[in-house]
Design a protein around this nucleic acid. Structure first.
Lengths: 239, 239
DNA sequence: GTACAGCATCTGATATACCAGATTTCAGAT
DNA sequence: ATCTGAAATCTGGTATATCAGATGCTGTAC
């Protein structure tokens, strides 16, 4: 901190660092395991051994246990008391995670349409406009970043922090896969149309329309993801 | 186990006990804390101390930490690294939990309507019929039990185990509160009508109708719960 | 009276020890 | 050869110890 000569407090000297950014071993383990599971680097039903994981990470079993507890609550592993934890993730699980995200995102879009104000609405439209520009010109990275901003803005507009947190936990395709997805011009175009329509519905306060369009968007882009990662054409939630 | 004279294996001698039923200290702590939080026995923002909890439960801090990790992932507490965990639950949080459950249950009802077969459909109708009888005659306990059966049957019919698991985590009014809710004849009648309508929509395969009705049912009964627990009239998701 | 450095204390994060339930192995009986 | 059950082993659950960051307190300087 730079010393302040006068006693008068400056309004916003430096942003306080968010304690959440601090990295602990258990978070590192949690993220690593989570990413590994979602990337399919474990077989469904495979047993994981705490001591062996601890050795691989070079830490004790304590943070491993805590990370496994988090994964258990997330539904990515199953704990059989006194018997160990087994991996629970396959294509079916991924489909259902997408459906869950669709259900929650559409609910939050519904509420955002009801609750968004004039200024926030204008910001959302602005983000959508930037996305339109980035779709044809810019690189995938800025598109990914705008994508995040777009959804996060909707979350904030809904004023639902619990729902937003739940959705975050559902968010499981990582940046590298997103980049692959946004490589395809057809996909970029489709996503843009959907985003534009969602933004319009929310800004005009059409909650039911916003909800439907958000749901279709999440399900459709989820299908794209599944096709890339699991490599088989699939309609989510059919039959 | 009763000894078997012949070498021939009996088909289904006794059901294997589900390992999940085994109780560990961390599960006990998790459930107790969860119930205490949902019952409002902690203030929002209140700090909880691991050592003090360990002392109160008469156990070491290890299972406490694991239970707190689960609560953290559930969104009921927030962990600030190296600083401790604070309670995150109030009426607003409860509202959002109800909305989340509404979103997920309606999604699962939608899928159940698409996927339910003839026999399972008949069973669902049968459960609804039993509910009709129990509404006027029987005690609250059997109504509560039928209620559970009803929703669980829908979950199974949807063939979505991940979604069902997610919903279970959202399930937060316990048996005692349910009993209070089901005491009121008007509430019983309203719930019956909703259940009947949901069953009909699912059995006839009207997925969109089932979805809408499930959502209304969860939100409306959630409002009843909120009025009882937090004691103020409130429309969820309005403004 | 106020501000701040330095010290004492509290408390979460991690490592380690130990126990008991679960699993596997293997010798002896049939 | 197969079954059984006791012993060895593995592994998760819990308890305890240790470390370091966060917090609180106090006495001194101004």
């Amino acid at each position: 901190m730079i010393p302040e000569p006068t006693g008068s407090p400056r309004s916003e000297p430096f942003a306080k660092i968010d304690p959440k950014f601090q990295m602990t071993v258990r978070d590192h383990v949690h993220r690593s395991l989570r990413a590994a599971i979602l990337a399919g680097r474990f077989a469904t039903g495979e047993k994981v051994n705490e001591r062996s994981l601890a050795e691989q990470f070079g830490v004790s079993t304590t943070p491993i246990k805590e990370a496994l507890r988090q994964l258990e609550t997330e539904g990515l592993v199953e704990a059989l008391p006194r018997r160990g934890v087994i991996i629970r993730f396959d294509m079916g699980w991924a489909e259902e995670m997408i459906l869950a995200r669709a259900a929650l995102e559409s609910m939050i879009a519904h509420l955002a349409a009801k609750r968004i104000g004039k200024p926030a609405g204008a910001e959302l439209t602005a983000i959508a406009d930037l996305m339109a520009k980035a779709t044809t010109s810019a690189d995938a990275d800025s598109l990914i970043s705008l994508n995040e901003q777009f959804h996060e803005h909707i979350h904030r507009s809904s004023r639902c922090s619990y729902l937003a947190k739940l959705i975050e936990r559902q968010q499981f395709y990582d940046a590298s896969i997103r980049r692959v997805i946004h490589m395809d011009p057809a996909e970029r175009q489709k996503a843009l149309e959907e985003h534009t329509a969602i933004a319009k519905a929310i800004v005009t306060g059409d909650a039911d329309l916003a909800e439907r369009q958000m749901r279709n968007h999440v399900v459709r882009s989820g299908e794209t993801y599944l096709n890339i990662v699991f490599g088989s054409k699939k309609d989510i939630g059919r039959e």
